[in-house]
């Protein structure tokens, strides 16, 4: 092959790839599962009592995160190998009024969003993370995990956490209180955070009913009495009444990267609460689209290998006979290293 041909071929390939943006075999975002469970976090209901943080630690057997000598109680600043769930605060200016963007404050919850189309599951090479086909819980199996931390890199919310200070550390993340040995969902119980939440700010339910509830709340007239469920979205008994606040018209997790099973609503823009602005198309679908275009059934690599083997064979044996172009062709022994690198 001539250099010009080579350049032509490369350029051709590049052009093809360029044209391929968007046309490459791409899968759609995954759809939410029929019976996917979820959590609706309503920041306007949250009073910052951290009951959910404590229950989470207790149920999952996590040690307190002690911050220095001064604070001798659990005061985790973010999710970590010791913390699955943390309540944070957004403050602005004088922080006078709750759920107001300017000179106000708002609580925020950070925990696994249990994505509909999770990047961590897509990225994990050994299926240590997978999505439960019934509940949609993103669950983790430490026995297969190799600790490559691709899940952490892939997660748009930085949720999976490796235990850096343990020589035999593992990934830690919220598994909806349903991991082996806890199995609260399987037993028909609520996840710890939703069970103890005094205001229903952390509300458990199916993703569908939570989404409906979220939209109902967003549609409620500010100032009018609204009946809030506690614990379970379908619980009509343990409710409490409160004036509906002024919600931002955005259910975070309805569409972000194909949606999440843990959704957030608030009175301040959700980006202020540590939730990144994300497109609707999941990165997992793009990555898998590229990957499957190239490797589906290993057909393309197999063809490439056959082609390469043929070309190499031809080139090496031709050189073995006599190739005037080759500097080495004058070498006497034919068994020698034309084919040997």
């Amino acid at each position: 092959m001539k250099r010009r041909d080579f350049l032509k071929a490369t350029a051709g390939g590049a052009t093809a790839a360029l044209c391929g943006i968007g046309t490459a075999e791409a899968r759609e975002n995954k759809e939410p599962l029929e019976n996917a469970i979820g959590i609706l976090y309503d920041a306007t209901l949250c009073v910052g009592c951290k009951a959910c943080v404590r229950a989470c630690k207790e149920i999952n057997g996590l040690p307190p995160s002690i911050m220095g000598e001064d604070v001798q109680y659990d005061a985790a600043r973010d999710v970590s190998g010791d913390t699955y769930n943390v309540i944070k605060v957004y403050k602005n200016g004088t922080s006078e009024q709750k759920d107001r963007e300017v000179d106000g404050f708002s609580f925020a919850k950070k925990s696994c969003m249990h994505c509909v189309d999770p990047a961590c599951v897509s990225a994990c090479p050994v299926t240590a993370l997978d999505k439960n086909p019934q509940t949609g819980i993103v669950q983790y199996n430490p026995d297969t995990c190799i600790g490559c931390r691709n899940c952490m890199v892939a997660c748009p919310y930085n949720i999976p956490q490796y235990e850096y200070n343990d020589p035999r550390g593992q990934i830690q993340k919220c598994q909806f209180c349903n991991q082996a040995g806890v199995e609260r969902i399987s037993q028909g119980l609520l996840p710890g955070c939703a069970e103890v939440c005094p205001t229903g700010a952390t509300l458990f339910g199916t993703r569908r009913e939570l989404l409906e509830e979220a939209k109902r709340r967003l549609a409620a007239k500010p100032g009018e009495a609204y009946t809030y469920a506690r614990g379970r979205a379908s619980d009509g008994l343990h409710t409490h009444d409160k004036e509906a606040p002024e919600y931002r018209q955005h259910v975070y997790g309805e569409r972000e990267l194909g949606g999440t099973q843990v959704m957030h609503i608030a009175g301040v823009p959700l980006q202020k609460l540590g939730l990144p602005e994300l497109p609707e198309r999941s990165y997992a679908s793009i990555a898998e689209g590229v990957q499957h275009t190239l490797y589906k059934g290993m057909i393309a690599p197999a063809i490439a290998l056959a082609g390469l083997a043929f070309v190499v064979k031809r080139n090496t044996s031709k050189a073995d006979q006599d190739d005037p172009q080759s500097k080495n062709s004058r070498r006497p022994e034919p068994n020698n290293d034309r084919g040997e690198p």
């Binding site: 897509s122 090479p125 297969t144 995990c145 997992a284 990957q291 499957h292 490797y295």
Partner: peptide, 16 residues
């Protein structure tokens, strides 16, 4: 574990 076909996640770029 990455050598065990039963664990392979073919969606994963990392596996490749």
């Amino acid at each position: 574990n990455i050598l065990m076909p039963s664990n392979w996640n073919f969606n994963s770029v990392m596996l490749e």
